[in-house]
Design a binder for these strands. Sequence first.
DNA 1: ATCAAGAATTGAGGCAGATCATCTTATTCG
DNA 2: CGAATAAGATGATCTGCCTCAATTCTTGAT
Lengths: 246, 246
Amino acid sequence: MATSAAAVLPALPATHPCHGCAARELALCGVLQEGELATFKSLGGHQQMSPGQPLFHEGDPTTQVFNITRGSLKIYKLLPDGRRQVMGFMFPGDFLGISISDEHAFTAEALEPTHMCRFARNRFDDFVEERPDMERRLYSLAAHELAAAQAQMVLLGRKSAAERLASFFLDLAQRAERLGRAPVTAIDLPMSRLDIADYLGLTKETVSRVLAQLKQKRLIRLVTLNRIEILDREGLDAIAQGLTDN
Amino acid sequence: MATSAAAVLPALPATHPCHGCAARELALCGVLQEGELATFKSLGGHQQMSPGQPLFHEGDPTTQVFNITRGSLKIYKLLPDGRRQVMGFMFPGDFLGISISDEHAFTAEALEPTHMCRFARNRFDDFVEERPDMERRLYSLAAHELAAAQAQMVLLGRKSAAERLASFFLDLAQRAERLGRAPVTAIDLPMSRLDIADYLGLTKETVSRVLAQLKQKRLIRLVTLNRIEILDREGLDAIAQGLTDN
DNA sequence: ATCAAGAATTGAGGCAGATCATCTTATTCG
DNA sequence: CGAATAAGATGATCTGCCTCAATTCTTGAT
């Protein structure tokens, strides 16, 4: 069951609808051949969203699944009194639709202008059911997400504020590297400080303060408000893993 | 992909090795027919563990997968300095092996005398690969676990100590009900207060104190140290969801 | 039964991060 | 461009949970 995406994909003709899709190798589509890809593509459509626009709400029927191709989203749950927990952020290549429930377990909302492929869920399921590769890929995605969720439980249950921020930045860097296939020292933060706080189980004030500490320790630098540069990755790593008192 | 376990299973002859297995309908095996079940069973063996005994450690190669049939386990991750996050507790019917990594992401340790079916991972994978039902079931399990992990993130990121305890007890009650198919008012706690604390992101002292509060509010009663009775489920529910100040 | 050892409870005080308030810096829009 | 508005940073104070320290209870061995 330890199946991973095909390492090499055949080049597509420039006229193919998926040609040039930044997400292709990373997403579900990665396991499909050219012919299948066309069939797959024909199942659904394309969709764009503007910042702040919700894709769906917690509790909505899950009639569609999505594949992010550009931009980013946050997904979150709310408690009745308004407390919010951000479950994660989605970037190009990420698949939004791992669930066997009829209702969405969370709300999804665009952080910036965002593009995605959209599929009717029943047609998607039918398509997947006939392609063992695809099923295995889906399982693999779910298993990865589960591992990530468990890492986040450690963060939320046992890490200090500084450890949480450091872990978060490193995680973002790694995801950017997976997308770009090259080492990354500067990271975009398309989400607000409040989003970060709600993701890390903190308040926006604490996020600001810890950010200031990390800056002062010369571990990071704020290029702009929404873009940081990692100055000392080893130092950040040491903090993230709890190897230093902070 | 919204496949669930078969609702009704054919009765097995009393001589069948899986006859009387408390976990059969719940576990992976639930989708298998009698013939297949025998084949499946022949892939692996049975194993018993005593309290405190580790099944495997974080980082160990994942050469086997397991299906709990009796007893219970805790699974946890450690930070380098010894801080611990318990990721969850496993009961009969639960499957231990959702992963595509070559190394275990956590340590698993028996809480009480515990029995399980054991399968070599490569043989298990081969078996699964030929049975789409089984693959779908595995995906379904992973999706469920992911949803549970996300609920736990809300708990760890945003709930108060009392809310965490209340949520925990209700969750245990629901799991017991899924196993026994009958309403449950008394719950066994095979884990220590420290295990509970490390699961809920608290200390054992806080767990003790909140337990005392819930007792005093007549929401629960301690039958013994390791068994509580739920006296007011609605009240607990209200707390768990954060509908009451506590 | 009695004792020992571990587990759980209870108490006192401290602290990391929350809350509330203010100020500063971006961004938007007329 | 400049005012309006929102986002972020910073300061002061508060508090829920943690830490450290005794007890008390439970359990298993003799």
